[in-house]
Design a protein around this nucleic acid. Sequence first.
DNA 1: TAGATTGTTAATCGATTAACAATC
DNA 2: TAGATTGTTAATCGATTAACAATC
Lengths: 220, 220
Amino acid sequence: MNKEFILRLTKYKRLIHKLKSLGFERVFSNNLGDAIGVTPALVRKDFSTLHLSGNKRGGYNIDMLVEEFDVILGRNSPQNVIIVGCGRIGQALMQYPGFASDDIHLVAGFDKAPDSVNIDNPIPIFGMDKLENFVSENNIKVGIITVPGEEASSVLDKMVDTGIRGVLNFAPVELKCQKYDCDCKCVIHNVNIGLELEHLFYQVSTQDTDFSIVNDNSKK
Amino acid sequence: MNKEFILRLTKYKRLIHKLKSLGFERVFSNNLGDAIGVTPALVRKDFSTLHLSGNKRGGYNIDMLVEEFDVILGRNSPQNVIIVGCGRIGQALMQYPGFASDDIHLVAGFDKAPDSVNIDNPIPIFGMDKLENFVSENNIKVGIITVPGEEASSVLDKMVDTGIRGVLNFAPVELKCQKYDCDCKCVIHNVNIGLELEHLFYQVSTQDTDFSIVNDNSKK
DNA sequence: TAGATTGTTAATCGATTAACAATC
DNA sequence: TAGATTGTTAATCGATTAACAATC
């Protein structure tokens, strides 16, 4: 429910998998807290709300954590993703090496001009007219948008209509799911690269200053 | 200082520029709140902490806001960015159309094998050995990392050494700036696409459920 | 004047943390 | 037993909001 909380969950899961592969058998709340940058108390609180319990002395059992987190985060269901928009960024993501290790599978790309897309892609590229059938036949729930900003909104509508429930949007517009009013049936994460860079410039420019100074400048 | 606050600032700025281009002369806190999804009270609070004042009856003057936000967000200083790692994602970003409109300029790319990078890039590509001089000569403060995960950490160190103060990281590892202990001289934003997708899968899978149900399942 | 909107204070809300009893 | 760590409660902290006096 809480964004920060869910983000911590995915971090816990990754960390726990790493620890398991290192041969750990138990782990303490303070180890976990240090690694993901929170207090041990919060780790225990999180685990407590997830009904994950440890031993008063021996910490938490790694095998148990691995198993439970895989259930909690739905690792057992197929993590298939489609990508709509096969321009430069779309094609780059198709080759992105970071997915395989997370059991996330990009299974197909869609483009309004599929024939003009390079041949050497690792996944099949279809025209937009194939989207609906593909999504329903393969029960796809999550998609990536990498179309130009002007097309993003209509592409989103199309995707939501076909049954997509989660979207990662790279187009430089802030998308909101308006199809179903406030009772939104689709979760959207916007990755707005320009906004991120602006944010960085701001932070860098004020790193050593504080607000009163900034304001004094603006009034010169 | 607060992440959410800074994000709102960039949204205010974009919105205000849009309103100005539409011919607006004044705007009220409730308009702004509706558009960026916060309460009017928060808009007034934000503006108040920024020492931006309006008229009790007539709202806020758009021209004043445009001017002040450009100062606050440093629009007046050059927004030059370099990119380290000229693989697929790096090259895709070089052609990204969303930057120009924000006065953000990608000015150069760096790669350990610059000769193997495609010729038709819109910006010059240099070897890593040129990084330090370029950054100091052009007074670059912000860079993008698009190298493979294994190289990200050492690339970051190199960038911080040359004087880069803000980094947008696309490598699939969570980077922290450790060079200067806790007194961190470099702000880092991690865009972890795999983590985002996992997060989405989790949200989609629990969209209609609540925690007690999730937990019951996990105990089956 | 009456109505509307700001600016600010105090209240609320929710997340995080400190602290400690329970217990391995 | 003594020491360490969990699980949970109560305190803290900070951000957001409601409310309203000031005033255009």
